[in-house]
Design a protein around this nucleic acid. Structure first.
Lengths: 95, 95, 95, 95
DNA sequence: AACGTTGAAATAGTTC
DNA sequence: GAACTATTTCAACGTT
C-alpha cells in the first residue's frame, strides 16, 4: 500500500508546515499575554477587572470604527456641501 | 475631569496597552493562518482534511510531551507499580 | 402572590427539578470517588500516583476513540495523502 | 525488568477500577443533565436563564442549611427555654 | 484551618 | 451551526 498521492504532496506538506509555524507564533503571543496578566496580578491588579476594561475598550474601538465608516459615507455624500455651514453641521452630528 | 485614575493609573494603562498590542498581533497571525488555508483551498486541497492532519500531528506532539512528563512520576512510583500488570502496561506505553 | 409563573411554569419547574436531582446524584458519585481515594490512601498508596495512572489510562482510551474517528476521514482522504510521507506517517498511526 | 511491585498490586488495581467505574457513572449523569437542558431548550426555554435559576436556588438551599444549622445551635442553647414564650420568640427570629 | 495555587470540567464566546 | 479557543468555575492539594 505504498501510495502515490500525486505530484501535490510537497505542496500540501508546505501548507501544513506553514500553518503549524503560524500556530506556534499564535500560541507564543498568547503566552506573552498570559505573562502580562500575571505581571499585572502580582502588581496588585485584579485580572478579571482588567479583562472587563479590555472588553469595553474593544467595544468602544468597534463603535469608533463604525462611526468612522459612517462618517466617510457622509463625507462622500456631502462632498459638495462640506465647505458650507449646513454641511459642517451635519458632519458634526455623526462625528 | 482629567481622568484622574490614581497613582497606579499609568501602570495599569501600560498593562492594558501591552495586552491590546499583543492581541492585535495574535489576530494578525490568525489572519495569516486564514490566508494559508485559502491559498491551499484554491490550490485544490480539502481544508477539512488539512485540519484533520494538523489535529493528528498536534495530538501526537502533545502525547509525546505528556508521556514524557508522566515518565518522571512513574520513575518514582516504579517500586509500587512495576510488577502489577496495570503498572507494566502503563510503563510500556511511556517507555 | 401565589407564584403565578404563567402557563409554562409547571414545565419549567419540572426541568429545574430533574436537573437538581441529577446534580445531587452527580455529587453523590463524586463523594464516593473521594471515599475510594481516602481508602486507598489509608491503605498506604500514593494518591497522586493513582491519579497519574488514571490520567494515562483515560488518555489511552481517548486516543483509541479519536483515532478510530479519524480513520474514517482518512479513508476518504486516502487518494490525496497516501503517497505523501506526511500522509503515510499519519495513516501508520491510525492503522 | 519484569518488576515485582509487591503483594499490593491487586489492591491497587481494585482501587483504580473502582474509581474508573464511578467516573463513568459521573459522566453518564452529566450526560443526562445535558439531555435535560437540550430538552428544555427545544421546549423554548432559555438555557442560560435556567442555569441562573439553578444557581439562585442552590444559594437559597445553602442559606437554608446555614439557618437550619444555626437553628439547631439555638435549639440546644435554648433547650431549657424552648417551652417558654421567651424562648419561642427567640427561635422565631432565626427560623 | 484558611489561604492561595493548581488542575480539570463546563460554559461562553468566536471563527469558519 | 459546528468546532475551536478562552474564560470561568470547582475541587483538591499544599502552605502558612
Amino acid at each position: 500500500m505504498a501510495g502515490n498521492v500525486g505530484p501535490h504532496g510537497a505542496r500540501l506538506a508546505s501548507f501544513v508546515e506553514r500553518i503549524e509555524r503560524l500556530n506556534e507564533e499564535r500560541k507564543s503571543t498568547q503566552g506573552d499575554i498570559g505573562e502580562v496578566f500575571a505581571e499585572a496580578k502580582s502588581a496588585g491588579f485584579d485580572v478579571k477587572t482588567i479583562r472587563e476594561v479590555l472588553k469595553l475598550r474593544a467595544m468602544d474601538a468597534a463603535d469608533r470604527q463604525e462611526r468612522q465608516a459612517l462618517l466617510e459615507t457622509y463625507m462622500h455624500a456631502l462632498g459638495m456641501l462640506a465647505d458650507l455651514p449646513l454641511g459642517k453641521a451635519a458632519l458634526d452630528k455623526v462625528a
